[in-house]
Design a protein around this nucleic acid. Sequence first.
RNA 1: GCCCCCAUCGUCCAGCGGCCUAGGACGCCGGCCUUUCACGCCGGUAACACGGGUUCGAAUCCCGUUGGGGGUGCCA
Length: 445
Amino acid sequence: MTDRVRFAPSPTGYLHVGSARTALFNWLHARATRGTYVLRIEDTDAERNRPELTRALLDELEWLGLDWDEGPHFQSERRDRHREVVEDLLDRGLAYLCDADNAEVAGTSLVDGLAVRFRMPDDRTVAFDDVVRGNVSFDTADLEDFVVWRSNGTPMFLLANAVDDADMGITHAIRGEDLLSGVPKVLLLLDAIGAPRPTYAHLPLLVNASRQKLSKRRDDVAMADFRERGYLPEAMVNYLALLGWGPPDDIEVRPLEEIVELFRIEDVNKAAAFFDLRKLEHVNASHLRGLDKATFVERVQPWLDEAPWAPEAFDAGVFDRMVDLVQEKLRTLADVVRFVDFLFLEEPADDPESWQKVMVDGPSAAEVLDGAAAALAGCPWESEAVKDAVAEVGEALDLRLGKAQAPVRVAVTGRTVGPPLFEAMAECMERDEVLRRIARARARL
RNA sequence: GCCCCCAUCGUCCAGCGGCCUAGGACGCCGGCCUUUCACGCCGGUAACACGGGUUCGAAUCCCGUUGGGGGUGCCA
């Protein structure tokens, strides 16, 4: 029999990066073992049983490329089966009715308005072998009776989860460590209904800088936000795979298909992992550079469409001439705008830091601009000539080209950072416009 | 409080009793290249939490301590 795993998110309206990591590891295990990856929506809580919340979840999973083989199954549609199990538990005295004050109420079948609690057996040790954590054991003396059926007639998570895993033939439950302490209750439930226990694998938690579980309130956790900020799905998934797992050959940046070949759930480590945005950026930049030109242009298009310049000001031909120079420097797709905006904006804004660094604190800004204005007015409008012109101005002032081009760059583009300057000016801009910007900057010194 | 889990560079991962004077990556620092730079190349910085065992030998096994985290809902 092949392995059957499942990702069973609660529809909260967005995909949490921690959940995405769980989904990814389940998906990887299924693909690596040629097993089956089942998607199940745990919407037993009435508030979460709304189609749009699930839709948002599925959108992000699809974006990441984590396709499922079966489902999505909806827990809310399995109410009758859950009820049947609870009735059986009640009938066999393994669970009991209880009122709002948690007081036991006599009876062996469901009653409207009353909840049902599972009766915790006395002094038993419940142990299991977790694929990543090894042997874990709990004493039932430390556990309380727990609710399996709400007074409003809906099943509780633990019950639905246990029953569904059993009914769906789930062989491996791969999920976050935050669910570890719930295992003994699920195991007892499974034993009670005579179902086999799945193998558990509890993944280390993803934590923030203060080493606490990533939370919606204080951390950036919505996958959609990363997408909007210009992260590539292949980079996202690559980085996530590196949290709690590492390739045996130490090659970290690589396509998912390769990770599938190398992934083994038993290699996952136990310690919590810090979600490091810096490293994510590095992985993203690497994948970005690896894109072929056509794909890169396609990916970056949405950001160009939303850019601050007037739509008619955009010149695809100009952009095309700059693409290669820009692609290798971006860390996120969103960065593209800052790299080329000066080409399409009437009056690119001056970046205050750049202005301070070069025009105020830097050497001979006024002289450079005056010299450049004169030299560029007469030289051939071609990148080599433009470069030579600026280089000469620098030499006269005893400045290396790197220093000499800085004021010109800030005057023309508004920033110290950007694509190669002389190519951009000569190949993408009119001489008059360049001169106008230099004059404008000179006047503001 | 009680229960459970965890503990190698700042961070992520490697190491599963000798190959470790602990390796790779991100970051950081320095240099090179150079038309800035978020590319590339070279070099550097930096860790086995602590204390006991076990063993000829421990980052690796055991126990304890300390530290951290998770759980403890008629949420999932």
